[in-house]
Amino acid sequence: MYATVVRSEDYRATKLATTARLLPDLLGPDAAPFDLRFRSSDGQSARTADLLLVSNGPYRLGHLGGFGTRERMDTGLLGVVTVTVDRAWDVTALLAAEAGGHLERFHGYREWTTPAFRVDSGVAAIDLGIDGESVQLAPPLEFRSLPGALRVRVPVEAPGAPPAAVAPAGLSAAVTALFRVLAGRSARPPAPGG
């Protein structure tokens, strides 16, 4: 789905509008299902997904448009997200979950981590979107993370630090951070031994 959207001439200028315009044709009742075969989080064989995201490290997703942020890329794990739309009214439910910033509430949304991931297909080439570019690659696609292949050190307080690295994960951590700030302390507890 993402590869088709980024291939559109209008995508660069109006990403969200282009995505909204193309979704009904890509996910509607007359859309042909994508031929993707992989193992789901429970190890079962999956026959397709309308959106399949494989990333170096898991993303914290809230919206389809921005594709979230990652806290780390050095865990040696891939983040895998699938979105599957089974019925016509699922598109409305998906858009509502996306608009509210809670994709995880959509029944066709799954996410998990794994050290390796394989995608197979009966087509000669699979359409992919890689960093905003549309490409085609022959199956099978083999994904794995190479921890330490790239090293980047960024201070937590540096401008441009990924939001997942500085934002509390979950309601309990957010409330704790809020109370720390209200008490006049940093939202993040001091590092051990620091």
Rank of each mutant, 00 (worst) to 15 (best):
T75E: 10
L128K: 07
T92I: 09
G148H: 12
E142C: 01
V119D: 06
L78S: 10
A149D: 13
G132A: 02
G66S: 14
R144G: 01
L150H: 11
T113M: 06
G68M: 03
P162G: 12
V135K: 08
P155M: 11
R153V: 10
S145C: 09
V80A: 11
A93V: 01
E98V: 08
G148Q: 13
G160I: 05
A161R: 15
M73V: 07
A125G: 01
V85G: 03
W112L: 09
P147S: 10
D90C: 10
V152Q: 11
G66H: 08
P140E: 04
D86I: 05
A96D: 13
L78Q: 07
L150D: 10
A99C: 03
V83I: 15
V81M: 14
V119L: 10
V81I: 15
A138G: 00
S145P: 01
A158L: 15
E104A: 14
A88C: 07
V81Q: 11
G108M: 02
R110N: 12
A93F: 07
G76M: 09
A138R: 08
A93G: 12
V81W: 02
V85F: 07
G100M: 13
T114V: 14
D86N: 14
V85S: 11
L95Q: 13
D120C: 14
T69W: 07
T69E: 09
A125D: 01
